[in-house]
Simulated scan of single mutants.
Amino acid sequence: MTFILAHRGSAGTHPENTMEAFIAAEKAGADGIELDVQLTADGEIAVIHDLTVDRTTNGSGYVNEMTFSELSKLKANYHSLHFFKKSCRIPSLREVFLWLEGNNLLCNIELKNAVNPYKGMEEMVIALVNEFSLEKRVLISSFNHKSLVLCKEIDPVIETAPLYNEALYKPWDYAVSLGASGIHPKLKTISDQEILAAMDCGVAVRPYTVNKESDMKRLFAISCSAIITDFPGRAFRLREQY
């Protein structure tokens, strides 16, 4: 069965990377959620995609220059008011983990450390994973592939997967060289044949961002390991056909 990972939660219907989006993803039938983390000025692990708060909130400035208290006062649905009226906040990873204790969802954590390396991020994230005993339910991905190697050194149990947005030759071999057991390619960079070849080699394939029904159907038909989508409800309904 192809797993459904809700990209930044149910980001197609709710403000991305908010508890509201994660809760909606669970209700929509997702098998897991995907989220992004960065470090604040006071060392908290915040769940937010961009380096700045400008696009997704009513604030302005860099995440790593703000305290978590300052971040939590912002409206995380500010630019989504046309379809979501309820006020939303930027959550911490701890808050998400506390919520995960009440369900069985998987959690794909993307480390946003490709531009800003965030020294110590890997240790902090994995320490929190260990605190909540979520090693078997967490998957760490990043465009910073050196960071993924470090994650495996810190805790070999946690699954890792490199993110990439350009075509790679035999990406399954590359994943193995990193100690990773999965790959997260941009959908258009990988063919069905390559997906099947990777899975035959024991490497899971989870393309992003799969929002079109035609793409979902194609990937369900070949039993792709998982899809990362903004519309988990749509994916769940289509998967029932397979």
Rank of each mutant, 00 (worst) to 15 (best):
N165F: 02
E34Q: 11
F236W: 08
V53L: 04
E20S: 06
F220E: 09
V149S: 07
K112Q: 01
M216C: 07
T57W: 01
N77I: 01
I48V: 03
P162W: 01
A204N: 11
A76T: 03
A28C: 05
G182Q: 03
V129I: 13
V138D: 07
V63Q: 02
S92A: 07
N58T: 13
F3W: 11
P117Q: 13
A114I: 04
G9A: 14
E213Y: 04
R137Q: 06
D230N: 13
I190T: 12
G179N: 11
S225L: 06
R55T: 01
Q241T: 10
I33W: 14
V63T: 02
E131R: 12
N104G: 03
V63G: 01
V138K: 09
K136H: 07
T18Q: 00
D192W: 06
L196C: 06
E44A: 08
T57K: 01
C201T: 05
F68L: 14
L35P: 13
A161M: 11
K152F: 05
T229E: 05
R234M: 09
S10I: 07
N144P: 07
A30E: 08
Y62H: 12
D50F: 00
V37Q: 04
E16Q: 00
T229I: 05
V115M: 04
T40W: 01
C151M: 14
T18A: 00
K85L: 12
L35K: 12
S87G: 03
K152Y: 04
V37W: 06
H7R: 09
G29V: 06
P185A: 11
D31W: 15
